[in-house]
Nucleic acid binder design. Structure first.
Length: 404
DNA sequence: CTGAGCCTTTGCAGTAAAGA
DNA sequence: TCTTTACTGCAAAGGCTCAG
């Protein structure tokens, strides 16, 4: 029990700047009364404060709790009991930001984590203790997340929430993992399958007709025509195209060799004569690169920028998709789901008719980590040619040829 | 004033890599 | 093989700037 004077003395000492410095409670008390009115200690050359003069025992407790971390040069961890939802999100995001600095995390992913953290703090309240969260708390959160999301996005969001609280346990800020209960599961595979089917029924298949493709290719202007041909010849997506360096092109032999940026998987593909011609023409009128690093790129916008770029906060700005969508509208071909990426789907579908899925995957740059691919060192040029020829015949077949 | 081109924001959908 | 973690793709809307 504290003496009756402690509170009153403490109060006056805190409020009057001229208060007299207190004595140490005992000779071996590790802290000294700093002139700012707080108990302090110098550790590793830095002054640390542990609480007001009028609360020496509290200051001592705080010092003992943080001592090991401070002496080791670490930031002291919060006491487990006091870890609030807001505090956790701040630390979690700070940790992820460090990964951004080393290039180990994309800004886009961080942005998703930020949004998740904001929603979690809004839902549970800043001051809510993490250790206090129980399964019945997560069911309403899931309901809220589901209000604006479909099954896929809901699953992603739930996963991010789990990642957040898993981090708290991994950091040893919790004595045991958070229990979410069964009301916080990700949507089941069945739900996802049904959802996909409904989407397909609503939007139709993401496939072009050969006539539509020819119309697009014939009427497109110059870099777009080359892009279209690359997409349907090799299954290239927008980001592949935007990052394609000139060195990937071998016009003499008619091959393109460019590891997929997304996966780093090696990828080679024979080029159609039409594609070679379009690429040659496109290169001949390529604008000057605005940034020296982009000088080697095959495609640049009128302003010498990359066609697909990351904006400051990690969002892709995809000029190819926009230009494409404009062309589609102009030709009266626009329908939902029929975007530039659908060219890649079309390639895969038509190419699959060769029944050589391995060769198709190799061209698409799909990483297949099964045992067969590990043992399969090389796919012959003939197989790749067969796949590409199949698609070329399909695209350029005139109705008469089809009939014959 | 208008449209082109660029930039930013929001949010859903889907895929790949790593880990257990 | 299943789960967790991370990344990529797609759509749409609104704002800004600048040349014609």
């Amino acid at each position: 029990m504290s003496t009756p004077t402690t509170a009153s003395v403490g109060l006056s000492e805190c409020t009057t700047p001229r208060a007299r410095r207190p004595e140490k409670p005992s000779p071996d008390f590790p802290l000294f009364p700093h002139q700012t009115g707080r108990w302090a200690k110098k550790i590793r050359g830095r002054l640390h404060y542990f609480g007001p003069w009028n609360d020496p025992s509290g200051a001592l407790a705080k010092y003992l709790a943080q001592r090991d971390d401070l002496h080791a040069g670490r930031k002291p961890r919060p006491p487990v009991r006091d870890l609030t939802v807001e505090h956790l999100t701040q630390r979690f995001l700070a940790s992820k930001r460090r990964y951004i600095e080393t290039g180990e995390l994309s800004p886009r992913t961080l942005r998703d984590y930020c949004a998740t953290c904001e929603q979690v703090v809004r839902h549970f309240g800043r001051q809510r203790l993490v250790s206090d969260l129980m399964p019945e708390d997560f069911e309403p959160l899931r309901a809220e997340l589901a209000r604006t999301r479909g099954p896929v996005a809901l699953g992603n969001a739930i996963q991010r929430v789990r990642t957040l609280f898993a981090y708290a346990f991994d950091q040893a800020w919790l004595e045991r993992p958070i229990r979410y209960g069964s009301g916080f599961d990700k949507p089941s595979r069945k739900t996802l399958r049904l959802h996909r089917q409904r989407q397909q029924a609503a939007h139709g298949r993401r496939m072009f007709q050969a006539t539509e493709l020819r119309m697009l290719i014939d009427t497109a202007g110059m870099p777009l025509k080359a892009m279209l041909l690359l997409a349907i010849n090799c299954g290239y997506g927008q980001s592949d195209i935007a990052q394609l360096p000139e060195s990937a092109l071998d016009f003499d032999r008619g091959w393109i060799s460019f590891p997929r940026p997304k996966t780093g998987v090696e990828r080679r593909c024979p080029l159609w004569p039409e594609t070679v011609a379009a690429l040659r023409e496109s290169l001949s009128c390529r604008p000057q690169a605005q940034c020296p690093a982009d000088r080697s790129l095959v495609f640049l916008t009128t302003f010498g920028r990359r066609w697909v770029r990351c904006t400051a906060n990690g969002h892709p700005d995809d000029a190819i998709a926009k230009l494409f969508s404009k062309r589609m509208a102009a030709l009266g071909l626009k329908r939902p789901g029929l975007n530039f990426y659908a060219l890649r789907h079309t390639f895969e579908t038509i190419a699959g008719e060769t029944r050589d899925q391995v060769a198709v995957d190799a061209i698409m740059g799909h990483a297949r980590e099964d045992m067969a691919s590990l043992y399969r060192e090389h796919i012959s040029d003939a197989r790749l040619n067969a796949v590409v020829d199949q698609v070329r015949r399909w695209v350029f077949a005139t109705p008469q040829q089809k009939a014959s």
